[in-house]
Design a protein around this nucleic acid. Sequence first.
DNA 1: CATCAGGCGAGAC
DNA 2: GTCTCGCCTGAT
Length: 275
Amino acid sequence: MIAIKNKNFSIEQICESGQCFRMARCGETDKYSLIAFGKYLELRQEGDRIFFDCTQEDFDNIWRAYFDMDTDYAGIIESIDSVDRYLLSAADYGKGIRILRQDLWEMMISFIISQQNNIKRIRRCICLLCERYGELRHTEEGTAYYAFPTPQALAEAAVEDLYDCNLGYRSRYVQHTANSVFHKEIDLEALYRMDYAAARNELLKLYGVGGKVADCICLFSLHKTEAFPVDTHIRKALAAQYPTGFPFEKYADYSGILQQYIFYYDLRGNTVISG
DNA sequence: CATCAGGCGAGAC
DNA sequence: GTCTCGCCTGAT
């Protein structure tokens, strides 16, 4: 068990912020589970202390970077223009959110599925994909879980079987992109070395990946924090709060982090959460 | 019943 | 380059 203290870390907010579809609360307990990079992790929180049920080795090699533990989120929030009351409120509301560093391939497929879709169904689609095409694994304690499917597994899946995973018209996007990755028509390693503009441009070549999805992939896996995904929620929020335009120039290289505060505030703020 | 979810590709112009 | 339209499915 690894214990870390951090005031800008909320497991609940990270889970609900909609960037990771394989993190969930364990029933009615205070524990959360997460499957990422082929590993299963349980974690829980007491105030500003977070407890990771893993070895020091896994924490250092995987989870420290995954949860972006070395970025100063308090400093980012402090940099917000003091006259921008809306952004200050949004950031205060979602101050425990972190921009995760997730697997690139998994984010490609996850955000292709996310288009014109709702979070509940996205989770269900991904769960089905993992159960049918991912490798079954067990923790040392015996907990069973499925790894995310490999590019080969999804490339070899029939489109009609992907339809059965409830993907709808996105099935052919997933199939096509899986083939592009499996046959190395796109070099995933090279994407990490590119800057934001180049990486985004490369991602746009994938069938089923447009501007919004490319920005989500850039932000949530390549950690290009200048990427600012604009979806229907953000579009409405910006129109209402920033009639003359969002001040990107003030937050040039981390506006994507602020996007997450706005998105989460719009999604959860001032609403009753059901289910 | 219609509308809308974290949009995108295809075709028209 | 910009605009419009159709698209799986389920929640509201």
